[in-house]
């Protein structure tokens, strides 16, 4: 098993795209975390350290990681490399486990480095812009998330991106589909729902990112939000697994 992980690790870091997207991710994290501190946005109260550290749970940060996540299978299909990979590791479950573990390691690594960057941003911020007490601001809405939630959400988002690429065999789809869903499509559905006097509430309550964000922001009225979000991610991953195992390489 280790050799498949080594293969995957080398695959990941031997293209410049990975390095570029990782740096962009850290840049966006710094901007998004630092922005409110410098602008003195106190509408939701003064920012706290906990609030600052939930910044990289935001979809706008995660989209950079999802580019890398999509490349886990996207590059393989695009350049025919999947046939080299599977000639070397004919047992497909090994390839899938290796890719998923390396993706988890990558997301964890980037999240930790992201927090270090946010720590520096906070340390350099104007005096008084961060309080050590109080609730603080979650840029995704609601209350600041716990740090483990940021990590789990980031991984889940990237698993979704990777799964969509596995199903569509198209790199761009893995990036665009989750991003559009999170930032646009679900918003539109919520809009229609409020216009239709709540007839579409059941749909809104089932949407992946509505639930994901409710879970991240600890919304008190959505106790099952985490479960519903998890069901979406696990479902996508299972379909992707099936499609990877059953189809021609």
């Amino acid at each position: 098993m280790m050799t498949a992980v080594v293969y995957e690790w080398r695959r990941l870091w031997s293209v410049r795209a990975t390095w570029v997207m990782s740096v962009v991710y850290l840049g966006v994290t710094a901007l998004l975390g630092g922005g409110p501190l410098y602008l003195g946005d106190t509408r939701m109260g003064v920012q706290t350290w906990k609030g600052l550290y939930s910044t990289n749970g935001n979809v706008l940060c995660l989209v950079m990681l999802s580019v890398v996540a999509s490349q886990f299978f996207g590059h393989e299909y695009r350049y025919g490399l999947i046939r080299l990979t599977l000639s070397e590791f004919p047992a497909r479950e090994r390839v899938l486990v290796a890719k998923t573990s390396v993706l988890a390691a990558y997301v964890a690594l980037m999240t930790f480095v992201g927090w270090s960057v946010l720590g520096m941003v906070g340390a350099l911020a104007p005096k008084g812009s961060i309080s050590t007490s109080g609730v603080g601001l979650n840029i995704s809405g609601g209350q600041p998330s716990d740090m483990w939630q940021v990590l789990v959400f980031g991984f889940a988002y990237c698993v979704l991106a990777m799964s969509i690429t596995m199903i569509t065999r198209n790199l761009a789809m893995g990036v665009v589909l989750p991003l559009l869903t999170a930032t646009l499509i679900e918003g539109l559905i919520q809009g229609f729902s409020s216009l239709s006097n709540g007839k579409l509430d059941w749909l809104v309550n089932a949407l992946p990112f509505v639930n994901g964000n409710a879970w991240l922001g600890k919304a008190p009225d959505s106790p099952n939000a985490g479960l519903i979000f998890a069901a979406w991610i696990v479902g996508a991953y299972l379909i992707a697994t099936l499609s990877f195992f059953k189809r021609d390489a």
Binding site: T3, Y7, R10, S14, V15, Y79, L81, R83, E88
Partner: peptide, 18 residues
């Protein structure tokens, strides 16, 4: 069957993993 931006050396290093 190679990534256009992965050097020949890195490509073979990757394939040598197993």
């Amino acid at each position: 069957f190679f990534h256009p931006k992965r050097t020949a050396y890195s490509h073979l290093r990757m394939l040598g993993a197993e």
